[in-house]
């Protein structure tokens, strides 16, 4: 009982702190080599959030109000589901389903729907283009994600994330399946449309699905994106970096460190890579990455048979 309460608390804390941590880390990554650190790094995200709360939410011509207001909240809810799936220790986990890997897969699939809805419901041209573009991306990365995750589940012989971690006792999946984590990181960038895969909210669309959003709903949207990034990092740390496993420190601390590591890696990629042209992106996904994820799966399967 206490453990389930503690794990629930953990989800809420990450939900509340996640956006701030992501914003600060992103600023740190952006200014890292030249070290132009201002107090802005620490206070900036907070004052920006305060500004967005002060700003009024605008209207467009005949939007689908329900969907428009709900989409950011739903995306946040999906991110929260993702967070609830991350095991902090063998027992400290909010939702220990036997099919938690599949549930994460459905979070990814539903995220596509929600992001599409966010762009579609504004009833404006640029968000709509962003939304359609995102669907092409979303349908491409979901298959990759599925194969890579099945690969991670194979050595555990279970679709339960706690079992997936337990199976990495001798060797982490990042070593056992070297293709897994790099491919999964691409999925993460796609899921949060971050950096090179920001096809939904991109600069060529003046903000894409978020181009017509202001005020509190924009704040929720940005927070949801950040929390999704954290949730994804947590899942990646669990599935490939051995979750709570590690010497000296207690399990939850290891999960936290590994999550922050994956997060920093994603933010760094986001700062250093240009946005991939949508056509090139889809080609890359289907012609290069999808076959690579097949290879990853076959590799994992052969290893599992061998053992």
């Amino acid at each position: 009982m206490i453990e389930s309460l503690a794990s629930l608390l953990m989800v809420l804390v990450v939900l509340a702190l996640g956006p701030y941590v992501v914003a600060v880390m992103d600023r740190l990554v952006a200014t890292a080599p030249r070290g132009a650190l201002a107090s802005d790094v620490w206070l900036g995200p907070l004052s920006r959030a305060a500004w967005l709360l002060t700003q009024h939410a605008n209207a467009t011509e005949a939007p689908d109000w329900q969907a428009w207001r709900l989409a950011p909240a739903l995306y946040l809810a999906l991110a929260a589901v993702g967070l609830a799936l991350v095991p902090w220790s063998p027992t400290l986990i909010a939702t220990d389903l036997v099919t938690s890997v599949v549930l994460w897969g459905s979070v990814e699939a539903l995220a596509t729907v929600v992001i599409f809805l966010h762009g579609w419901s504004a009833n404006a041209v640029l968000p709509l283009i962003g939304a359609y573009r995102y669907v092409a991306l979303g349908l491409s990365y979901i298959l990759i994600s599925m194969f890579v995750l099945i690969g991670a589940a194979l050595p555990a012989e279970s679709l339960q994330l706690t079992q997936v971690v337990a199976s990495q006792e001798s060797l982490w999946n990042v070593v056992r399946q070297p293709l897994g984590l790099p491919l999964f990181l691409v999925v993460g960038l796609g899921l949060t449309f971050w950096g090179p895969l920001n096809l939904a909210d991109s600069t060529d669309l003046a903000g894409g699905t978020a181009a017509e959003v202001s005020g509190p709903s924009r704040l929720v949207w940005e927070c949801a994106r950040a929390v999704m990034l954290v949730a994804f990092s947590g899942i990646a740390a669990t599935a490939f970096l051995g979750g709570w496993l590690g010497p000296w420190l207690p399990g939850p601390v290891w999960v936290l460190l590994k999550t922050l590591f994956v997060l920093a890696l994603l933010l760094w990629l986001g700062q250093w890579l240009p946005r991939v042209a949508p056509e090139r992106c889809v080609t890359l996904m289907w012609i290069v990455l999808l076959p690579l994820s097949f290879v990853d799966l076959v590799w994992a399967g052969v290893l599992a048979l061998w053992a």
């Binding site: 389903l97 036997v98 099919t99 599949v102 549930l103 897969g105 459905s106 990814e108 699939a109 539903l110 596509t112 729907v113 599409f116 669907v135 979303g138 349908l139 979901i142 679709l159």
Partner: peptide
């Protein structure tokens, strides 16, 4: 039916989107 229920989520999400 834990597997079928969860599978329903992602199957239907992709299906309805398409």
């Amino acid at each position: 039916a834990e597997y079928l229920g969860v599978a329903m989520f992602f199957m239907m999400a992709v299906e309805m989107m398409v």
